[in-house]
């Protein structure tokens, strides 16, 4: 009994008090800062080294929807690419995820996610999500679980993961969509009543990531179903996920 009390006292308050003001440590690789004036050869070396083909040149740009934030390009860029620790990376438009030197973080942050009135009205007070892992490696899945843990406590905003698509307002997809999971994902999506939202989490879900060239994936789902929110990362930090949702809901 005393041990239990001692444990409770030692545990204290673990929840991060103000998520909106929270910072992550310097080491974290988030929003890339691109300074093309410093690139000795236009970033060709970076393009070659990128494992997911996220980098293009003339002008030098990074597609956060493909980027796995491995940081390899940083080493070959002669200062042209630097990953900052800005973790707010979500976007409601796929094309906004392509970052060039002209786009600074503040601009991206202000424009990437459009908070729509109807979304706020529908889901602003309560958003229930069904997660489907379709070839996900368990990295994104662990971070999505962490978003609801004692530290991040996403439930305080009325956002929760639920067990049945019938109880959900939307689906959160991780993984490149393996062929064997494509039908099940479609079924889960169809089981959610309208209006519903689709959130693609991680490089694999957004672009196929490392598995884009595999013949064992089937991404037809995304041809048929529009995505409302893209959350980049490999895996995305729980802050990235929570912030994107709060912006999306206009909270």
């Amino acid at each position: 009994m005393f041990d239990l009390l001692k444990l409770r006292i030692r545990h204290g308050k673990q929840a991060i008090p103000d998520i909106r003001k929270a910072k992550v440590m310097e080491a974290f690789r988030g929003f890339p800062i691109i300074d093309e004036t410093r690139s000795w050869n236009g970033g060709v070396g970076c393009k070659e080294i990128c494992p997911t083909g996220a980098i293009d040149v003339n002008p030098l740009r990074i597609d956060l929807g493909k980027c796995i934030f491995c940081g390899e390009c940083e080493k070959f860029s002669d200062g042209a690419i630097k990953f900052s620790n800005q973790y707010r990376l979500g976007s409601s438009k796929r094309e906004s995820l392509v970052i060039a030197s002209s786009k600074i973080f503040e601009e991206f942050d202000n424009t990437a996610i459009e908070a729509k009135k109807e979304i706020h009205k529908l889901f602003g007070r309560s958003l229930k999500l069904r997660q489907v892992s379709a070839g996900g490696c368990n990295g994104c899945e662990l971070e999505l679980n962490a978003a609801s843990n004692v530290n991040f406590d996403m439930g305080r905003f009325g956002i929760d993961f639920v067990a049945s698509p019938r109880h959900a307002d939307g689906v959160v997809i991780t993984g490149p969509i393996s062929s064997n999971m494509a039908p099940a994902l479609k079924d889960a999506y169809n089981s959610i009543s309208e209006p519903k939202i689709v959130i693609a989490v991680g490089a694999c879900a957004i672009s196929g990531g490392l598995f884009a060239d595999s013949n064992q994936i089937n991404r037809k789902f995304f041809d048929e179903v529009p995505v409302n929110l893209f959350i980049p990362g490999c895996p995305p930090h729980p802050f990235t996920f929570i912030h994107a949702l709060l912006d999306f809901l206009g909270k």
Binding site: G175, M181, Q216
Partner: peptide, 23 residues
Amino acid sequence: FQHRGVEDLFLKNKNKPEFLLNL
């Protein structure tokens, strides 16, 4: 259900050591 063809991807990308490490 999760089959992504990992072993095939190892051979397909044998020339790209960084890719293989990420994979």
